[in-house]
Amino acid sequence: MVTDGQDNEQIILATGGYDHTIKLWQTHTGMCHRTMQHSESQVNALEITPDKKLLAAASYQHINMYDLLSNNPNSIVNYEGTSKNVTCVGFNDDGRLMYSGGEDGRVRIWDLRSKNINCSNTFETLPGSGSSLSPINCAALHPNQIELFLGDQNGIIYRWDVRTPLNQQFIPENDVTILDIDISPDGTQMASVNNKGNAYIWNLSSTDIDGKTSLQPRHKFTAHKRAALKCKYSPDSCFLITTSADQTAKIWDTEDYNLQKELKQDSQRWVWDAAWSADSQYVFTASSDSCAKLWNVSKGTMEREYAGHQKAVTALAFRDTVIN
């Protein structure tokens, strides 16, 4: 039996994509040490619970949970009810809640610990074209744990306090699709990228009496020539990485948003996802050339390659450990 203390020593890298498998990797050798079947559909997003016991895979109509402690190749929990693709999934800090957003235009809050599964909350986007709700592409939880920022296909960013049915909307640019949102771990900045390759940065501040976060536009820049797919702040909030269909990932500083490093490899094709190491020294990327890669941030060089998928790797999840 593995104890909690030992769990935390684990470094977990999980990748998934179009080949209907999820692979776990030995980060330093590049060896795949476990393959899990995800037979029903492709993997849209991956996330590891804060306790490193479960891996959530967002896919078509389902969120599948895999046990990271056993060798069970099949999922152990299946969250149903989304009528279309689940596009994003995440956990709050204590792992009690899971949030998911889907192309059906709804964000769902799942209570993981309580047996009373009714005790969950939902949020609906504004209807897009016609009467159907606008598909949600991304969701990011504010470090204060009560505000979710959602991006939809109509280019609207919603700030939603999960305790209330109220929300606030922002439209940074017309006729675009918001593809990703991230909030810096220190809670001071928010970034969003869209399908035109543009990045928008806001300053966040908690000024109101009721604890509402207010947004002040800070910066706008063209990060990529083609669609930007993901943006992720580093754990020390000093860097932002953006990945793109232009076959690159770029690292920007968070002071002036100048380009620091371009992570590029010929033939790597679309770069779909990225994840930082806990000390912000390394970053993983997932790309369409069926590989995940590890990059050294300061040098901008590729350190390791994780080959074994048969098709594009579109999702990546990583949990690091911190050594004092």
């Binding site: 020593e9 470094i11 980060t27 800090d93 009690r96 809640l97 209570d111 309580s114 005790c119 470090p143 204060n144 744990q145 009560i146 999960v162 305790r163 220190d186 809670g187 001071t188 908690s206 604890g211 020390d236 909030s237 190491s277 806990a278 000390d279 020294q281 390394y282 690091d320 450990t321 911190v322 050594i323 004092n324």
Partner: peptide, 23 residues
């Protein structure tokens, strides 16, 4: 369920150099 968590303002002076298991 939804407990608001106060974000500590980043203490720039006393920044601990963390090292990750991956590094």
């Amino acid at each position: 369920l939804f407990v608001k968590k106060e974000i500590k303002p980043p203490d720039k002076t006393n920044k601990k150099v963390v090292k990750s298991g991956l590094s």
